[in-house]
Nucleic acid binder design. Sequence first.
DNA 1: ATGTTGACGCATG
DNA 2: CCATGCGCCAACA
Length: 116
Amino acid sequence: MRTYDKVYNLVKKIPRGKVMTYGQIGQMLDLNPRVVGWALNRLAKVKAGFSAKGRPTSGGKPASTVPWQRVINSKGGISTNKLMNIPLDLQKKLLEREGIAFDKNQKIDLKKYLWK
DNA sequence: ATGTTGACGCATG
DNA sequence: CCATGCGCCAACA
């Protein structure tokens, strides 16, 4: 069981309309937030077709089943907008589609949507 | 084996 | 409020 598989398995359990933070996931899996981010970043690459040479995914195909958009930072904001391989505001759109609202600062109300 | 790289978080100024 | 700095550690080259 790779470390990133733990992350994927947990993220897959996040119910629709709820979100989790990197720090929260890291705490639950006894990993650092950075590692969580790393795992998701890897997902993005796979999804973008940059499948790592000879190492596309861990056996299966987690990329298509992991609701990565439900993972946000501790401020309740989106962290993917500064990335090259993900369209701007894609994550925001996906979340809004699930009924999650953003305020004027592009932030989510953690009190309301955070899953525990 | 070793160095680099982060979808982060927290403390500090 | 914004800017830095550091910890942290798996995966990759």
